[in-house]
Write a protein that binds this DNA or RNA. Structure first.
Length: 213
DNA sequence: GCGACAG
DNA sequence: ATCTTGTCGC
């Protein structure tokens, strides 16, 4: 009995597959122009209808500078507060940034996943590390993002005529599943609906807080 | 040493 | 990220 309790945390977390995802959340943050306040937002969508099921937010003083590679220390506090205020438990979380495609293989998405034990993945808008060939022009076309011969992500075309996004694994999910989910969350725009909603909400929350003193 | 560098 | 005007296109 006591033995089981000690061993449980050592069991490898089970990874999910796309069919396990019914509720998918998106997270993002917005900063005041002077970088004094950060607002975090999380929006949960029905993975198939892409309708909003739940959402929450939080704002607080910024307490860590922007340092490439250390984004989690700057954004996680607000995101964790927002997630704690959620009334729903998402099956997966799409992050605005990188997961494994990180200098230390532990970007924001990995950090958030480990702390919350939620499956997570990252969808970044611009390159960070690694090398890649430009993916094909059609939606769904992808190329490998590699670093020292290791595949660390996918450069994915989510929409024709726009720049590709950079998908990487976060926690308890594999790259192909993360890529599948990213495509499932995009249709009319380059970025996933999850992050688009979270981005909008975080800006609104920030504006409200700034406006109300 | 110099440049690059998610958000 | 945020600042910042107009502009090209669906």
């Amino acid at each position: 009995m006591a033995e089981q309790e000690r061993l449980r945390p050592l069991v490898l977390p089970q990874g999910i597959t796309a069919r396990d995802v019914h509720l998918v959340a998106g997270v993002d943050v917005a900063y005041a122009k002077d970088e004094s306040i950060v607002a975090g937002a999380v929006v949960v969508l029905d993975a198939h209808t892409r309708h909003i099921v739940d959402s929450a937010s939080a704002s607080r003083p910024v307490d860590f500078p922007y340092v490439p590679g250390l984004l989690a220390f700057r954004e996680l506090p607000a995101l964790l507060d927002a997630l704690a205020a959620l009334h729903t438990r998402p099956d997966a979380v799409a992050c605005d940034g990188y997961g494994t495609a990180h200098p230390r293989r532990f970007g924001l998405a990995c950090h958030l996943g480990v702390v919350t034990d939620l499956p997570t993945f990252g969808v970044a808008k611009t390159a960070f590390i690694g090398e890649y060939e430009q993916p094909g022009p059609q939606r769904g076309d992808r190329s490998q993002l590699t670093d020292h011969g290791e595949t660390i992500g996918h450069v994915l075309r989510t929409r024709p005529g726009t720049r590709p996004v950079f998908v990487s694994t976060g926690h308890r999910i594999d790259l192909d599943t993360a890529t599948q989910l990213t495509l499932a969350l995009t249709a009319d725009h380059r970025l996933p609906e999850t992050t688009r909603h979270a981005d909008r909400l975080s800006r609104q929350v920030l504006a409200d807080r700034l406006g109300h003193g």
